[in-house]
Amino acid sequence: MTVVLSTIEATAEPMLPRPFEVVATRRETADTVTLDFAATDGEGLQFSPGQFTMIYAFGVGEVPISVAGGSADDNVLTHTVRAVGAVTDAICSAEAGTQFGIRGPYGIGWPMDAAEGGDVVVVAGGIGLAPLRPVILRLLDNRARYGAVSLLYGTRSPDDLLYEEELRQWRGRFDIEVEVTVDRAADGWYGDIGLVTNLLTRIEYDPENVTAMVCGPEIMMKVVAREMGRAGTDPSSVYVSMERNMKCAVGFCGHCQYGPDFICRDGPVFTYAAVRDRMRVSEL
């Protein structure tokens, strides 16, 4: 392959953010905050569930963050951010009115269309519920297009649950089965205790006609995919969302390489079938 230079058109600057303003914040847990952003030029950001943006904090830096919700028409972009470094600290401590630069969205998201007509099992671990929240909202908005829908959610402790109010609402519905489990709990926890895979045997789904969308620590995703595989689900029907260091989000910086794939461009969502072999290699 030779690049024909005359055909190259420098399109819009791929690394140029647009200014967005924080319009609302909600504290989720001790270290995690949900923020609603609005583009200052009034033009909302159109995204698909599972895509991410790059958020730039003035003078501090830029990080990839999954889109957790929003609506381009209403000019609302929702992100849930866990404070684990300088940039995420800056985002989590921002007040309404603070401006950030946001570019994107990037990446290939969850298979919302391919999942139509069958059962859907959504499995989230910890902060992994954030990129799956738009999936759940989409499923519920188009409920008739899907079979049985379940959400299995595991966290470390009840204090680490995201979107508690929404979880309660979803639990109260008859068209989605919601199971929540934690690794450990003090008194006053009425939910489950144990690994999220334990919940797989309790829900109704057809292992041979299901799409699973799984996001959480890599080991958790691997264990979920393995258990579902043992129950008869094809690894190409189990989708996982991968994460690696990322600087540019457009395939130039090289950081997010995962074997032959650039997670920013070829992912972040992959079928388990595509990444299974790689998930057996450490430090890849």
Partner: peptide, 19 residues
Amino acid sequence: VNRLHATRTQLLDLYEFPR
């Protein structure tokens, strides 16, 4: 065996220290 696997995975404290 299932409970042993689950317990071992929980021992990794994955959500606090993603790996």
